[in-house]
């Protein structure tokens, strides 16, 4: 049996099922990160003193990573736009760049983390580092998840372009919505953890 409403929109919602599905998922993600942001506020306001992020963390590296993630959001949306223009070659180029930029983000984060560990700065060291590692760690898992799905659409999943191009374009759009959300979360994490 075929999955319903993958290409045609439902009359009652005006949307494909995939579109409403990904937005409901993102709504739950907002609550997940929201809970941790609330924890951050609680811990920070309850602390006698709180370190400025830039006294502990590497701001230039994080600024670089912010630029990397924003760029990957643009390449992601360009990958979808390429499909809408029937330019599959460009789609592969942009999607490949998106996955690659996700990889760059993770490598930079690896260096940041390992540098902290070498200095003996662990999640157990203090509340600042505990919430830093929790928030950035969870965000990193999302980057890995997004990269996995994007890599699938770049690799084996791309076969669908020949059999059902509209469905494929819709799936890439939905995967893009998740990727932009990951970018959006970082846009808030960066100043919160590194600059304030």
């Amino acid at each position: 049996m075929d999955i319903p409403y993958t290409v045609e929109v439902r009359r009652d919602t005006g949307l494909t099922n995939g579109k409403i599905g990904i937005w409901l998922f993102l709504a739950s993600e907002v609550m997940l990160f929201g809970a941790l942001f609330a924890s951050y506020i609680l811990i920070r306001t309850g602390a006698a003193d709180w370190p400025r992020g830039d006294t502990i963390l590497n701001v230039p590296l994080a600024t670089f990573n912010t630029i990397v993630l924003i760029t990957s959001s643009v390449t992601m949306v360009m990958a979808w736009a390429s499909l809408m223009r029937n330019q599959f070659g460009k789609f592969r180029l942009y999607m490949g760049s998106t996955v690659l930029l996700g990889g760059v983000f993770l490598v930079v984060k690896y260096f940041e983390y390992s540098h902290k560990f070498h200095e003996g700065l662990l999640p157990s060291s203090n509340n600042f580092l505990a919430i830093y590692f929790t928030l950035t760690g969870l965000h990193m898992l999302h980057v890995i998840g997004g990269m996995t799905v994007n890599a699938y659409f770049l690799g084996p999943g791309a076969k669908q372009w020949k059999t059902n191009p509209t469905w494929f374009a819709n799936r890439v759009e939905h995967s893009g919505l998740f990727w932009h959300f990951v970018d959006l979360v970082w846009i808030f994490l960066f100043p919160t953890l590194y600059l304030l």
């Binding site: 929109v9 494909t16 579109k19 643009v74 736009a81 499909l83 809408m84 223009r85 509209t166 819709n170």
Partner: peptide, 26 residues
């Protein structure tokens, strides 16, 4: 969502306008 029911490659001018906006936002 308006593209959801249309085949990729349609309304190319619309997509071109979108791409310009993406670059500006970037």
């Amino acid at each position: 969502s308006e593209h959801a029911a249309s085949a990729p490659g349609h309304d190319a001018a619309d997509i071109d306008r979108h791409v310009k906006v993406y670059i500006t936002v970037f």
